[in-house]
Design a protein around this nucleic acid. Sequence first.
DNA 1: TATTGTTATACTCTATAACTATA
DNA 2: TATAGTTATAGAGTATAACAATA
Lengths: 176, 176
Amino acid sequence: MVDTSARPKRKLPRTAPAAATPEAVPSRGIDLGPLSERLGYVLRRAQIAVFQDFFASFASLDISPAQYSAIIVVDANPGLSQTQVADALGIQKSNFVAMVGLLERRGIVRREASPSDRRTYRLFLTRQGRVLLRELHAVAEAHERRIAAIIGDDAYAALFAPLTSIGDHLRSVPRD
Amino acid sequence: MVDTSARPKRKLPRTAPAAATPEAVPSRGIDLGPLSERLGYVLRRAQIAVFQDFFASFASLDISPAQYSAIIVVDANPGLSQTQVADALGIQKSNFVAMVGLLERRGIVRREASPSDRRTYRLFLTRQGRVLLRELHAVAEAHERRIAAIIGDDAYAALFAPLTSIGDHLRSVPRD
DNA sequence: TATTGTTATACTCTATAACTATA
DNA sequence: TATAGTTATAGAGTATAACAATA
């Protein structure tokens, strides 16, 4: 689930030379009407901007938001199965396979065969993965501070509770 | 730009029968560590939840968030060119072509040849489009009230300024 | 030369089905 | 029968290149 848009393209395009800036900035000279009072629109714009800053911040480490979240969950819960981590992140286990494979090839995550259930792998960070994670956290915190600087520390801190609440509770609300 | 993820698939899948619920809910039994203090993560989760509610709300009218935003901009700025509307929404003009075509075929938007510049079309809502827009706004407002009910009216109202600010200003912040 | 609308194309993310090997 | 990991595949969104008509 947690992923997308602001997406810098990884591979070099075959017919195209090189990506400039992803997710172009909407022009500000045109009346957006009631759009600025629609939370979905405002939320989406903010999320794209934050992800763009995230991508720019982590470009040198070549880590995406989705990878960062997976590394964090594996670190906080060593030994979880791929399915458990995928569920925790809200992504399909089938789509998680390639990501674990990549993190494993990069020496960040380790798959360990479970002794009790030979169908499952238990996931751990490698030592190198833990070192990387410290670095990632430092970059992420600078990124957070950059956002806080825009809107002020109090407004920044005040965003978490309502946004988390929306993410947690909206799905189950009945439609009328 | 403004669009995506929570995406109910429109067309019926060819190899697959039917989509159940898009963007699965992350399990809440696992420690997410510092992820819950990363604004990007929280923002993304909230945005997906809000878009899911939006899709559910507008399913019967078959209008996506991107279409809704385009209809609003055309209504608020009658006679803009496709390129201008695409720029205002932050989407590529090439990707806007199909959307205008669809809205035109559905009788919501009208393309009118510009008398002064024969390369451009001026976009307008049809009468039917304006009727639809009123309906869309009513549904959208119910959707907004549903969100406000989760976190309270004050917290809801307080989200707009900081989120808009982040969306407007983050892109131009220099990296260090 | 530059721009508008357009087509074609590639890549990413997401969702589902189906397979295998286990349980 | 059911589940874990995997593969294959389809659909949607987005980015770029290139073209014809026009400026």
